[in-house]
Design a protein around this nucleic acid. Structure first.
Lengths: 339, 339
DNA sequence: TTGAAAGCGTTACCAA
DNA sequence: TTGGTAACGCTTTCAA
């Protein structure tokens, strides 16, 4: 078990030089006799030798390490992303290191620097959204960076994200076509591009509508009083009303608050929320949701990063690439006030 | 930004030797003039120099790295654990590396070895449960190991876990005192100590009861047919009946299946489940749950591990330590069939 | 097809 | 109080 064995021990045991062992470890069999290879193979296996990645990294400046900093790990969405990252790193031969910034800018920087200290070859960042300057500067630094889910406005950093605007627009159209006369957009403070894109979809989806009223309610999903207050305010708009929730956590808070206040979904408000989840299917009435890629986001981000890490020239290119994945509207009971 | 600066550059810039810089970096100010210290400090700050942890690790064999392998990240419980680990590592001056085994033994081993290759000083493992031999052998290896949540039977490895047995017994007593005449224990395949402890609580809670019947249903939470079949089988036992679910995922699957089959909580079955979550409060009727430490589990595991890493002598001691955290029964509507 | 030796960026011993 | 230098475990020329 990595018991202090070094390349020297293996060389001695196999009766060859350290150089040859190194060649074997790096699969440079081209100029190695079959016999030597076999011999080394046997020794490595029986002694259960594993080369030190630390020494390797130091010498070759290549660690095969990728660092990912995740802002908030407390939802299914993040978990699936991480699985995507994990699986893809594994498949591509890299080791993934994950750190949680817990939505703190300071933490995000600390974690990034620790990763850099450990010679990661690339960085995947699900940014808190407040780290614009630091991240932009980072991009000019030594290792490739890919942003995950949340972008950084006006920066050139690659970002892999969902099509929040497009699906948001589609959801708006659906609500309007369903006959809702008021739509309330419930969102926490708009601190990142995901939220701002969703908000933009709400506003543009409303633009030009004369029959439909809309309002934005900036809420704190953990603060019930705040949630209730906003709902009561929204309740003054004409019926039928639909709440458009910018994320699952807010929807959950809303549901809890409604339960307290004896407010009914459908009767009082229709509900449509970003973030698909099991509980959306289980509650009554079931909740109409927007299902976005999460696992796929992780996969794509990882692929793109590795591409940049391994690409020689284009690594330094200034063109923003990145990609947008498609999303899906899942219609359930919570928005069917008719019939 | 770590732009290839080395200790040599700093030494040159500060007009002192590399040795002195190293002393500064390791806060060995004892034998250093105030003046030198200030000078170095200035240079380090203005040049934004950060020492390479890779070189440090190689030389000193101390990486300040802790590796955590998590079996399943797809639930709030795991997320909270990770937060606990993350915060505590940070506080104690260690860098946390997380990997996901996704409930695969093979993956678990791969991730552990990768961590070892990178010189982690200690390992926190939330084991898949099938890795008994490997883990036991690992314990005899070079780095300290702490098991998280799930233990390994008949091994001496330290484990930080919840008191699954005690709280399970309490839940059983509560159900029986509430007047339920049949209790069905719904659990996925019993592959780890957490599940086996919960099962043991169910069985012992039933022991000696003459009025109350019980049965164990081993189910696959993702397979609705399977779930429904088990519920139908349980439905043959005398009323009132309570389902005791061994985890949140199973409860969610059960809820979904019940919705499909038009089965009612309370009318058809009472429901009590391990794992507290927001949706348990939000659904109607709300669900009685067992709330266990998760964040605290992460904190404790981390503390214990660091203690072992830094402890000199006792590190090799054979005594199993570890700890058990208390749990809490949260009574809600789903078990109140009376009144 | 193989090996000797220099060097990656630190730390730590010994000397000054 | 400070500095020279060997060494950590590996990779990579260069030479054989």
């Amino acid at each position: 078990m990595n018991k202090g064995l070094t390349i020297k021990d293996i060389a001695k045991a196999a009766g060859v030089s350290e150089t040859t062992i190194s060649r074997y470890l790096n699969k440079k069999y081209e100029y190695m006799s079959e016999k030597t290879r076999r011999k080394i193979e046997e020794v490595v296996l029986t002694l259960d030798y594993r080369p030190s990645n630390v020494a390797r990294s130091l010498k070759s400046q290549k660690s095969k390490l990728i660092g990912a900093v995740i802002a908030d790990i407390g939802n299914q969405f993040a978990s699936d992303i991480i699985k995507g990252l994990s699986d893809t790193c594994e498949a591509l031969g890299y080791t993934l290191m994950i750190a949680i910034s817990d939505e703190s800018t300071e933490n995000e920087q600390i974690q990034i620097e620790k990763f850099l200290d450990n010679q990661v070859e690339g960085l995947i960042i699900n940014t808190t959204g407040f780290n614009q300057d630091y991240l932009t500067q980072l991009r000019e630094g030594s290792v490739p960076v890919v942003l995950l889910d949340r972008g950084v406005p006006e920066s050139q950093i690659d970002v892999v994200t969902n099509d929040n605007y497009g699906i948001g627009l589609k959801a708006m159209k659906y609500l309007i076509d369903s006959g809702f006369k008021s739509i309330g957009f419930f969102v926490n403070e708009v601190t990142n591009t995901v939220r701002s894109e969703r908000l933009r979809a709400f506003k543009n989806g409303l633009a030009g509508q004369t029959e439909v009223l809309g309002d934005v309610y900036v809420v704190d999903p953990d603060n019930h009083e705040n949630l209730i207050e906003s709902m009561m305010s929204f309740k003054k708009l004409p019926e039928p009303r639909a709440i458009f929730s910018a994320n699952g956590l807010t929807a959950l808070g809303l549901l809890e608050a409604m339960k307290e206040e004896q407010l009914q979904i459908i009767e009082d408000f229709g509900l449509l929320t970003f973030d698909e989840s099991t509980w959306a299917r289980v509650v009554s009435p079931s909740i109409t949701t927007i299902d976005q890629s999460s696992y796929g986001l992780g996969v794509e981000a990882c692929r793109l990063l590795v591409h940049k890490v391994e690409g020689t020239a284009e690594k330094q290119s200034l063109s923003t690439s990145g990609s947008q994945l498609p999303s899906r509207l899942i219609i359930r009971e919570s928005t069917s006030y008719l019939n």
